[in-house]
C-alpha cells in the first residue's frame, strides 16, 4: 500500500464536502490497518479496477449521514431527506472516489469504479479481504468520516 494514495482522497473529500454540504473537513488521523473493515455503522463500498485496483470503504455515523443528506437537499421535506439519505451518502462517496481517481489515473491511465453499495446497522457482518489498508479520519463541525483505502497496483 502506497501512502501517497491518501492525499488524492483527502483533497477530494475536502472539496466534495465543501461543495455539496458547506462543511470543512480536516484530517484528524491516518493509520495502517490489515483490512478495510469499517468502524462506523453506515458504510459505503466502492470497487476500483484497472492499473490500480481494490476497494474504498467509507464509514460514518447515522446522524452524520442524515446531516449530509439534509445539507445536500436544502428545502426538501424531512421525510424525503430521510428516504434519500443512502442515495446522498453514496453519491458523496462516488464523487470523492471519482475525483481522487482523476489524480490517480493521471494523463494516460483509466481507472474504473463500481457503483457504490451502502450497508447500515451495527449488526451486519461482512468479511473483507486482507488487503493492507490506509485508514483516514476526517472531521467537521457536524461529524466525521472514515475512509479506508485498500488499493494495490497491477491489472487484475
Amino acid at each position: 500500500m502506497k501512502a501517497e494514495y491518501a492525499n488524492p482522497f483527502i483533497r477530494a473529500a475536502s472539496e466534495v464536502f465543501a461543495h455539496e454540504t458547506h462543511l470543512q473537513m480536516t484530517r484528524k488521523g491516518l493509520e495502517l490497518r490489515k483490512t478495510p473493515l469499517p468502524s462506523r455503522p453506515v458504510c459505503i463500498i466502492l470497487g476500483i479496477t484497472g492499473p490500480i485496483r481494490g476497494q474504498v470503504v467509507y464509514a460514518l455515523d447515522e446522524d452524520f449521514a442524515h446531516t449530509v443528506a439534509r445539507r445536500m437537499l436544502p428545502g426538501k421535506l424531512p421525510a424525503e431527506v430521510k428516504r434519500l439519505t443512502n442515495s446522498a451518502i453514496s453519491e458523496i462517496a462516488n464523487m470523492i472516489t471519482g475525483k481522487a481517481s482523476i489524480e490517480l489515473a493521471g494523463e494516460d491511465k483509466t481507472i474504473e469504479l463500481t457503483p457504490p453499495a451502502v450497508f447500515t446497522g451495527e449488526r451486519f457482518h461482512m468479511d473483507f479481504l486482507n488487503i493492507p489498508t490506509l485508514s483516514l479520519s476526517l472531521i467537521s463541525e457536524a461529524g466525521s468520516l472514515e475512509i479506508n483505502i485498500a488499493l494495490t497496483e497491477g491489472s487484475s
Binding site: 481517481s101 491511465k109 483509466t110 469504479l113
Partner: peptide
C-alpha cells in the same frame, strides 16, 4: 454528468 472525469474517460 459523471464523477469519473479522468482524461482518458472524457476523451473516450
Amino acid at each position: 454528468v459523471s464523477a469519473v472525469g479522468q482524461k482518458q474517460t472524457v476523451f473516450k
